[in-house]
């Protein structure tokens, strides 16, 4: 699956591991079930570790283990299942998770703007050929009303800080 990260299509170094198979070498992403079963061996292996959460698995379930992961992938089983928007924010804001937060599953170009604002920084997409479209979609709005996790200053802040600066 093509991966958008840092405004370009990049090589994906991560491999998703099945729940039963022997783990491949290198950087692997495991399901929560496998993490819970094999915590100790997963912690001691070489290579980075990632975790993929289904949309009914809150990051709260691994709140104490987050230091073990360099990547959390959050699944969108359908575009309209918006739980992962809250999960991404929770990871960044409450748990100060600094690794990669990746959107996987039914990821739509028209949601990229919101995902980016909620703290996602990598996106698995179906078609790399329309990268330009995706990047445009991520920039369709220059002003935002809410404080969030992208670099954009909220309108609230701009209004009152520009005013203060002018005074």
């Amino acid at each position: 699956m093509p991966l958008i990260k840092g405004d370009q299509i990049t090589e994906d170094p991560w491999v998703y591991a099945d729940d039963e198979d022997e783990l491949p070498s290198g950087d692997v992403v495991v399901h929560l079930e496998r993490w819970e079963k094999d915590k100790d061996s997963l912690r001691s292996r070489n290579g980075k570790l990632g975790l993929i959460l289904r949309s009914d698995q809150s990051p709260e379930l691994v709140a104490d283990d987050l230091a073990a992961f360099d990547l959390i992938a959050l699944d969108f089983p359908a575009f309209k299942d918006g739980r992962a928007f809250s999960y991404a924010r929770m990871l960044r804001e409450r748990f100060a998770f600094e690794g990669e937060i990746r959107a996987v599953g039914d990821v739509h170009r028209d949601q990229l703007f919101f995902m980016h604002r909620c703290g996602f920084d990598a996106f698995e997409v179906e078609n790399a050929a329309v990268l330009q479209d995706w990047l445009e979609a991520a920039r369709e709005f220059t002003s935002v009303y809410q404080p969030a996790l992208d670099a954009k200053q909220s309108v609230l802040r701009l209004r009152h800080h520009t005013k203060k600066a002018a005074e």
């Binding site: 309209k80 299942d81 918006g82 928007f85 924010r89 909620c118 009303y145």
Partner: peptide, 13 residues
């Protein structure tokens, strides 16, 4: 109205 407009987290409730 402003807070809820294009809210990044709550547009797919």
């Amino acid at each position: 109205r402003q807070w809820s407009t294009f809210h990044p987290e709550f547009s797919f409730l």
